Computed example of a mutant assay.
Amino acid sequence: MANQFQKAMRLMRSNDAQAQEDGFHQLRPHVVQHLDELIIEFNRETAHGLRCWLLELIGEARAEQALPVLIDQLHGDDESLRFWAVRGIERLDTKQARRELYQARTTGLIP
């Protein structure tokens, strides 16, 4: 499984757009198994587009463990990352997740 993750990440970092898409879609069905690795990669990644994709995958895990990363990006300055954070928090749909979204809407952080 670790090799599968590493291979998908190599593809996502490729200069070939189709390879990038292939890597993303290889990881998509396995986000729960690779959540720790996805969070690590998200935190060290500098390429904006790849960070967006990684955050999207983190949100798709629908795991409590992802909530701190999603909340951090919800309150960040990057609107693209905020968009994926909101989507991930909505997918999680726990009491704490709903509370975070409510507070963000109440304060005008998100519409």
Rank of each mutant, 00 (worst) to 15 (best):
M9R: 06
M9H: 04
M9I: 15
R10E: 14
R10F: 13
R10P: 02
L11E: 09
L11P: 01
L11H: 05
L11M: 14
M12Y: 08
M12A: 04
R13Q: 13
R13H: 14
R13D: 05
S14T: 01
N15M: 09
D16A: 08
D16E: 11
D16M: 10
A17S: 12
A17G: 03
Q18P: 06
Q18T: 13
A19I: 06
Q20E: 12
Q20D: 05
E21P: 10
D22N: 15
G23R: 12
G23V: 11
G23H: 12
F24M: 12
H25A: 10
H25D: 12
H25Y: 15
H25G: 06
Q26Y: 13
Q26E: 15
Q26T: 09
Q26M: 15
Q26S: 12
L27C: 10
L27V: 07
L27M: 10
L27F: 08
R28W: 14
R28K: 15
P29C: 11
H30L: 15
H30I: 04
V31Q: 05
V31K: 07
V31S: 07
V31M: 10
V31G: 06
V31R: 05
V32Q: 11
V32C: 07
Q33V: 09
H34K: 06
H34G: 04
L35K: 06
D36W: 10
E37Y: 11
L38Q: 02
L38A: 02
L38Y: 04
I39N: 02
I39T: 00
I40E: 09
I40P: 00
I40M: 10
F42D: 02
F42I: 03
F42M: 08
N43M: 12
N43W: 11
R44M: 10
R44E: 09
E45P: 00
E45A: 05
E45R: 00
T46H: 07
T46V: 05
T46Y: 03
T46E: 08
T46M: 09
T46R: 09
T46Q: 08
T46L: 10
A47C: 03
A47T: 03
A47Q: 09
H48L: 09
G49P: 00
L50H: 00
L50I: 03
R51F: 06
C52H: 01
C52I: 01
C52N: 00
W53R: 04
W53P: 02
L54S: 03
L54T: 00
L54M: 06
L55E: 03
L55S: 02
E56K: 05
L57R: 02
I58A: 01
I58C: 00
G59K: 08
G59I: 07
G59W: 10
G59P: 04
G59H: 04
G59T: 03
E60K: 14
E60V: 02
E60R: 14
E60G: 15
A61Q: 01
R62H: 09
R62W: 05
A63R: 13
A63P: 05
E64I: 12
E64W: 12
Q65L: 14
L67K: 06
P68L: 12
P68A: 10
P68E: 08
V69F: 07
L70E: 03
L70T: 01
I71N: 08
D72C: 12
D72P: 01
D72F: 11
D72H: 14
D72N: 13
D72E: 15
Q73P: 06
Q73C: 13
L74K: 06
L74A: 04
H75W: 15
G76I: 07
D77W: 11
